[in-house]
């Protein structure tokens, strides 16, 4: 799908790395109590109507307030994609890096100043395909950062191509006859690599998602939240699933909350049941804890 088609379909993004159609100035009319945490001077945002990313951002800014962590300590790092644009809309120190490389950048920020609360906010393609190697290694090291992965089962920004999370059989612009690949079960992937907090929610579960974000922000160690979210313009349309609202209804009818579920059993099939909940929440020394301990031991302290 090209940019023109996406725009014709009323899409804000989807179709190019930079799509940003002109839109009326709605700032005055829609002043929001969370504006302080958003760059309202950058609105309107690029996301399409009924896209799930905005919901995740709302929950995120609420979680920031509720966490009690001073706002100045936050640094939000994104890769490239529709979700990758989140860094540009939060009124916090924010970094929009290269495709797939948000986690290494975030690792550098965090290790160089552990007082920062470093959050990576990015898409499934960014974090799990091109950035997959960084994801598993950051989890393995138990780097003390929080990852919020918006999984819309597709590459939104580039116009709806196959992602490593696209369910088997689903159609995308590069799997026109249906996806022949097995998708990643992302919570299972990060949990088996050593992530110490792992949860999955959907864009429908705004309150639970926010609570999970508060928990992840307060967690010491590598915390990971997968948020299943509608890509209305591309994933929904390509697969004739209706609008983003229809997908939200689907989540409502087909999600099963199962805290502590065995992550090996929570694969997502095409339009099949989605298991959500908190799957992992353990304590383990972080990379910096272990580094400090090794040095102290060698110095005989």
């Amino acid at each position: 799908m090209n940019q023109k088609a996406a725009t014709a379909a009323g899409a804000g993004a989807g179709g190019s790395d930079t799509a940003a159609p002109p839109a009326p100035d709605v700032r005055e009319a829609h002043a929001h109590p969370k504006d302080r945490l958003l760059r309202s001077d950058r609105l309107p945002h690029i996301w399409c109507p009924t896209c799930g990313i905005g919901t995740c951002v709302s929950s995120f800014v609420e979680a920031i307030e509720e966490s009690g962590i001073p706002e100045e300590r936050f640094a939000v790092v994104s890769g490239i994609g529709c979700t990758g644009r989140v860094a540009g809309y939060v009124n916090l120190d924010s970094f929009h890096t290269t495709h797939g490389r948000a986690i290494p950048f975030a690792t550098g920020l965090h290790l160089a100043n552990p007082k920062l609360k470093v959050v990576v906010f990015s898409g499934d393609g960014d974090l799990v395909a091109i950035g997959g190697n960084h994801l598993i290694h950051a989890a393995r090291r138990n780097i003390d950062i929080t990852i919020i992965c918006v999984n819309n089962f597709i590459y939104g920004m580039t116009g709806g191509q196959l992602a490593p999370t696209t369910p088997h059989g689903a159609r995308t612009t590069t799997s026109p006859y249906g996806n022949s690949e097995y998708p990643f079960n992302v919570p299972h992937l990060v949990a088996s690599c050593g992530a110490t907090y792992v949860a999955r929610w959907t864009a429908l579960h705004v309150r639970r998602m926010k609570q999970a974000m508060v928990a992840a922000l307060s967690h010491r160690g590598f915390s990971f939240i997968e948020v299943i979210a509608p890509c209305s313009t591309l994933y929904a349309r390509k697969n004739r699933l209706g609008t983003g609202t229809d997908l939200m209804k689907f989540y409502h009818d087909n999600c099963e909350v199962r805290h502590g579920a065995n992550t090996a059993e929570i694969d997502i099939g095409f339009q099949e049941k989605i298991v959500v909940g908190k799957f992992v929440d353990i304590e383990k020394p972080t990379f910096l804890d272990r580094m400090g301990a090794n040095l102290a031991q060698r110095r005989g302290r």
Partner: peptide, 26 residues
């Protein structure tokens, strides 16, 4: 200081950019 052996050179370059924005010479 901090030394970290990253998973590859892409990550190494990314990490030193992040560290620089945290105020360190990297």
């Amino acid at each position: 200081g901090i030394f970290i052996q990253m998973e590859d050179e892409i990550a190494s370059m990314g990490a030193i950019l992040g560290a620089s924005w945290a105020g360190r010479k990297s």
